[in-house]
């Protein structure tokens, strides 16, 4: 790749001003690091992954509103966790976390358990009991 071939496709929503370093050859054939504003290809693959994540969060939010899952499931998806790692963060066994994803079991949880979940997920205990009624950015 030559210096003038380093892609400079600016996608402000994606890069937010970050310039990635690219190694490229200058006129003398020497390698230099060239800051790149962004590349469409890279932006595309990131967008797919990011949209997939957002869709999953939204799907879980609807499932919670329909009473199929507990709010815990929504916040777990929002924080990009799985039961195993949510359990490790909150200090609760994985099989218990999986049970707590069911709304009827979640409703009977003790305050102390809710506290540790709220701390692990960076939200207040009140937030943990419900999900937002409209989809929102984190």
């Amino acid at each position: 790749m030559k210096v003038n071939e380093v892609p400079q496709d600016d996608v402000p929503d994606y890069s937010e001003g970050i310039k990635k370093g690219n190694y490229a050859l200058d006129d003398q054939g020497k390698y230099v690091m060239v800051p790149s504003k962004g590349w469409d290809v890279d932006e595309l693959t990131n967008r797919l992954a990011f949209n997939e994540y957002k869709a999953k969060v939204e799907e879980t939010r609807k499932a919670v509103l329909e009473g199929k899952k507990s709010p815990l499931a929504y916040y777990m998806e929002l924080r990009q966790m799985i039961p195993k790692f949510l359990g490790k963060t909150a200090g609760i066994a994985t099989f218990r976390v999986k049970r707590h994803l069911r709304p009827e079991i979640f409703a009977k949880l003790k305050e102390s358990v809710l506290d540790s979940y709220a701390k692990a997920l960076e939200i207040t205990k009140e937030e943990l009991k419900t999900v937002p009624h409209n989809s929102q950015e984190r």
């Binding site: 790749m1 380093v6 190694y23 890279d42 595309l44 693959t45 990131n46 797919l48 997939e52």
Partner: peptide, 29 residues
Amino acid sequence: RQLAHVVRFQEEMGTGGAGFRYMFAAFLQ
């Protein structure tokens, strides 16, 4: 979906371009 995932590993994670291949070429130089 899977193909995009491969390309993400190649380009997104700050590799200096082409999955570190350009950086290694710079080292060889």
